[in-house]
């Protein structure tokens, strides 16, 4: 049997630190989009997800994570969600977390009431953390990031400079945000964030 194909990271550097901030790749094991079908599909999808994952799909731009921490659901539009299984969240079995399992669980639980599409390689997650995370992001992201307006769990589908992103506020202690970006843009976004962190144009 042939050797398995090996995975390549979307960007060369995995992490950089500057001025007390850290920018790092947050690899996804798996991700999938859920598009609710019309009619009663939406209510059924909510019920299916609640039954299988124990969480309610957010109805506004927010993220919700399952109690076991394995899967996060992000609001992505009026009838669309993104389910994320980060690589580092390791399941009780020690196996690769919600990954490998995520799409299978989704198909089994809600495949009949929504459109499911694999998105684990479509999106790259970059995590920016440390004091001043909001200030750095404000150089690229044109939405209100103030703690009164953008709290842990809040999500914004917007732009970072010229690049479409999904920004998710993770935590305030310490300050941390995640940016989901189309894989092909990841290197450019990494560069732009690096510049915003350090002030260097190179």
């Amino acid at each position: 049997m042939a050797d398995k194909l090996h995975a390549t990271a979307p960007i060369g550097a995995e992490a950089i630190s500057a001025n007390g901030l850290r920018l790092a790749l947050a690899p996804l094991a798996e991700a999938a989009s859920l598009g609710a079908f019309a009619g009663s599909g939406r209510a059924e999808l909510l019920a299916c997800v609640r039954a299988e994952f124990g969480v309610d799909l957010p109805q506004t731009p927010k993220a919700v994570t399952t109690a076991d921490g394995l899967v996060t659901f992000l609001w992505c539009g009026p009838s669309q969600w993104l389910a994320l299984a980060p690589a580092e969240a390791s399941g009780p079995s020690g196996a690769s977390s919600g990954g490998q399992g995520l799409m299978a669980r989704l198909r089994a639980s809600c495949g009949a009431v929504c459109a499911l599409s694999a998105q684990g390689d479509s999106r790259t997650a970059l995590r920016l953390s440390g004091p001043g995370t909001r200030a750095v992001l404000s150089r690229l992201v044109p939405v209100d990031l103030h703690p009164r307006a953008f709290r842990a769990g809040d999500v914004a589908l917007t732009l970072a400079g010229h690049i479409p992103v999904i920004v998710r506020h993770l935590d305030d202690q310490p300050e941390a945000c995640e940016l989901l970006v189309f894989r092909s843009f990841a290197a450019s976004l990494f560069h732009d964030l690096h510049v915003a962190m350090t002030g260097h144009t190179s």
Binding site: T60, P61, P78, P142, V143, A156, T158
Partner: peptide, 9 residues
């Protein structure tokens, strides 16, 4: 759905 946003979006 998303709230107040600038024209560039």
């Amino acid at each position: 759905f998303c709230g107040s946003r600038g024209l560039e979006e």
